[in-house]
Design a protein around this nucleic acid. Structure first.
Lengths: 191, 191
DNA sequence: CAATGTCATTGACTTAAGTTAAGAAAGCAC
DNA sequence: GTGCTTTCTTAACTTAAGTCAATGACATTG
């Protein structure tokens, strides 16, 4: 089964015809490692469903990368700029070689015409993304750096291994040196 | 004009009949200062549009209040629990005496039947809430405590005056003592 | 109006993250 | 493989937030 259909199957029973229409209608786009998908000042014309690879979103503050989001296989990435139609404030960049399926406003309208039920699905998925964002937000807000790292190891252990430490540190809101020290502290406690 | 209709007018042109239906169909609920609106473990059956007053959302971590959200007049408050149907992880509590207009799943379904266009409005409003959340999230992530406070004074100066310092401190992710010191430091620079 | 409770500030001290700089380890290109 | 870049770690020092404790301001209540 196509990954997109598998993803949607949680929300809606699609006929074979409908599934076929979605898959053949969906555009695939690939990105090289370090390829920039969206820059500040640009308006996002697409959102992305990640089939393979890993993408980060980040701000450039005084020349420093501030990572605010990490996305991997099976996750939808909806740039704020796509939702609002305004210029993006941040970068979207492939950390690994990526294969994504594109969503666009035009495609979405066509889809809603063809399968009206998808409007409800969008509302539900939107609610879920919002809820997930909120949880991630609240974790960051309520925990100090060291505990954020521990939490991340529990909830997304895959990330800790596949992503450069300095990117992970930025995502945790600390400097690479601090992450290094945290890791060392944790090691010592285990021994 | 009713505040809810004024709010919706940004998104949809409602006939007088439709506006009438929404206003008469909407339930008003008031809360006393310090009244708890939602507790961890409970499932939210309502979302709220704030007509008057101020509401905070917070986690209780080791007996300590960790404020993650502050909402005032004209803002919609959608508990994660309302969106997901799962038990809440956090408290929702009135900081000031509040007057709110309730939204509920049943009401929403009725509304969608009556005014199908409202489904599109929900999608748009949902996108906007998500975008606003993201901006607030990213501000917190990318700025250190002192700058978070400065930013908050720029973007929501009202909050800094109407809310207790210890609540504000918690919202900024610091202790009241630290906020006190930050304020002192800022004063000294002005003089 | 005294007594109590709530909230904000201050000071002394601790802790952990930031900064700067240097060097080690790993990955990549030629 | 050699050399180069990128990434990670370590160390010494600085800075700012956390902690603990005391005090002061203010509002609320009996």
């Amino acid at each position: 089964m196509h990954p997109i259909i598998e993803y949607l199957s949680k929300y809606i029973k699609l006929s074979d015809d409908q599934a076929e229409a979605i898959v053949t209608g969906s555009k695939i786009q690939e990105f090289k490692k370090k390829e920039i998908i969206l820059r500040p000042g640009e308006v996002a014309r697409n959102c992305y469903f990640i089939l393979k690879g890993c993408i980060k979103t980040y701000y450039l503050v005084d020349g420093e990368e501030k990572v605010t989001g990490l996305f991997t296989e099976g996750e939808p990435l909806v740039p704020v700029s796509y939702a609002t139609g305004e210029k993006s404030d941040y970068f979207v960049e492939a950390i690994e070689p990526c294969i994504t399926s594109l969503g666009s406003n035009i495609k979405t309208d066509e889809l809603f015409d063809r399968i009206p039920e998808m409007k409800n699905v969008s509302l539900v998925i939107g609610g879920e993304i919002m809820a997930r964002n909120q949880v991630s937000y609240d974790t960051f807000r309520t925990l100090p750096p060291e505990q954020r790292y521990k939490k991340l190891r529990e909830t997304r252990p895959d990330l800790c291994n596949r992503i450069p430490q300095y990117t992970l540190a930025s995502y945790l809101g600390i400097k690479p040196e601090s992450l290094s020290r945290i890791r060392k502290r944790m090691q010592e406690k285990v021994v």
